[in-house]
Amino acid sequence: MEYFLIIIAAIFVNNIVLAKFLGVCPFLGVSSKISTAVGMTGAVAFVMVLATIVTYLLQKYVLETLGITYMQTITFILVIASLVQLVEIMLKKVSPSLYQALGIFLPLITTNCAVLGVAIMAAMNKDFGLMESTVFAFANAVGFGIAIILFSGMREHLDLVKVPEGMKGVPISLVVAGLLALAFMGFAGIA
């Protein structure tokens, strides 16, 4: 498969948040400000690409070779949890400034289903080699970033608008997210 097609499909057509519904928790949780949304995106991109590479290799060379693919869920989630820890420790040592920026988001990533979801999708796709999987993971991270940053921009404006009492807060944010998803459906068919 062509890399270009993978990238366009993952970012716009099958956007991980707005079309596939993965990573909705951080999408709603850390999107009240653009700056936090950018930080979260950075952390997710980092872990998502790393985790996909490691789990892909494990799936192909360990789980499938030994015929124990039923251990997939346990293995993948442990890999992601340890990677998050590892990245945290390494960032603290190597680049304290980056750690300052991403640090608080890292623990949240273990339970971000976008990371596990992308790892599983890449491992299960018969057409994907290591290169395709890496590109796929990166493109999905970009898609996640675009969705969450656009959404946080819209939420910042929501603060200034008069909203009916009952719809304040989460309900109106979800309706806005729905409209954003509707806009993304316009990309359908370009890939």
Binding site: G166, M167, P171, V175, G178, L179, L182, M185
Partner: peptide
Amino acid sequence: LVFVLAPGAFIVLGYLIALSNK
């Protein structure tokens, strides 16, 4: 149709949460 598609999920859930808050 929009309610079965992705946007409908967000919108219906938004209204349901408003209702449960009330």
